[in-house]
Design a protein around this nucleic acid. Structure first.
Length: 323
DNA sequence: GGCCAGGCTAGCA
DNA sequence: TGCTAGCATGGC
């Protein structure tokens, strides 16, 4: 079953798919040529494969969503809502762009990353687990650990010629032993943090339905007391998992590196320095953070940008080239 | 071969 | 309250 989303420009789906390795990890199948993104979503107790494909351009964005036939109305509605959230379809970037354009060093970055929007995590459990795994590890190794956890779940769905893995359920992770994750090269602490968090959720001490209704501050209050979950972790959870717009993970090494580069600083700025700098980015600090992260991934200029429809006006030749 | 990575905890003063 | 060693492993 196929449906379409006509979106508010600018929207650069191809650029959005160029995320650091851990998100999306191999949990997600990316077809760079056709700018399509496939993965499995959990809806209720079911696992449902989806494929999102870009059909439009940066300036006339259009996405298609393909799901299996035979979904109930409720499932279809849930998938649609998940997809709109995951791919930041509701965002209007114009206020963010206008405000950040007043900072001179941001002008070229905003141009280079025109149409970039966050890809949010599919659900809150997956989000928190990925953030915990990402603590203090390089992105490649973090991605490897996520993959190993995914394959441990051993739950796949056949879809369009692929065998797509589902992220392990909360119950599955809660039932693991620490030794199982140790065997996958998780540190003892990381194994404990991940499994203990899953148990908090399964046993009802962390309630995602309630979290969705809370302010950022309230979410901090609930999650920070949990062992292994510090300020950075909650900030990333709010940003990637809940789509909140004004988080500033200033202690993040990647953000600090990106700020150093963008502002041409002699040395990496402290978290405090980043926080001060980011005062003028309110209330868009999550988006600014996302642009900073992406600035480290996407080549500054040159072929990759020119080869796709990027900032060029859309035309027939760029369409035929795909992405 | 050594330092670093999209941090956090526990132990110490 | 504030500071820091240790964690574990892979990437570069």
């Amino acid at each position: 079953m196929l449906e379409y989303f006509d979106l508010r420009a600018p929207y650069d789906f191809h650029l959005m798919l160029q995320r650091p390795l851990s998100r999306p990890s191999k949990l997600v199948a990316i077809d760079a040529v056709h700018a399509s993104y496939s993965r499995v979503l959990r809806v209720g107790t079911r696992v449902i494969p989806i494929t999102v494909t870009s059909l439009g351009t940066v300036h006339t964005p259009r996405l298609s969503l393909e799901v299996p036939n035979g979904l109930s109305e409720m499932e279809q509605s849930q998938v649609r809502a998940d997809i709109r959230f995951m791919f930041s379809m509701e965002h209007n970037l114009n206020n963010f762009i206008q405000q950040m354009s007043e900072i001179s060093v941001w002008v070229s970055l905003l141009h280079r990353l025109q149409g970039l929007r966050p890809i949010h995590d599919a659900d809150l459990f997956e989000s928190m687990v990925k953030v915990i795994i990402g603590q203090q590890l390089n992105l490649k190794f973090a991605a490897t650990l996520v993959e190993r956890l995914v394959y441990l779940g051993n739950e796949t769905v056949e879809w369009k010629g692929h065998s797509l893995p589902a992220f392990p359920s909360t119950e599955k992770v809660a039932g693991l032993s620490y030794e199982t994750l140790r065997a996958l090269s998780f540190s003892q602490r990381k194994a404990e943090y991940v499994i203990d968090f899953a148990r908090e959720v399964v046993e009802g001490r962390v309630d995602f339905d309630k979290l969705w209704k809370m302010t950022d501050e309230e979410v901090f209050t609930v999650l920070m007391p949990l062992r292994g979950i510090g300020q950075w972790t909650v900030e990333c959870f709010l940003l990637f998992g809940m789509g909140r717009l004004d988080l500033m993970p200033a202690a993040d090494i990647g953000v600090q590196n990106a700020v150093q580069k963008l502002y041409s600083l002699a040395q990496r700025p402290s978290a405090e320095a980043v926080r001060l700098l980011a005062e003028s980015w309110k209330p868009w600090r999550s988006l600014a953070t996302y642009y900073l992260w992406q600035s480290l991934v996407v080549a500054p200029t040159g072929a990759s940008r020119v080869a796709r429809q990027g900032s060029q006006p859309p035309n027939a030749s760029s369409m035929s080239m795909g992405f």
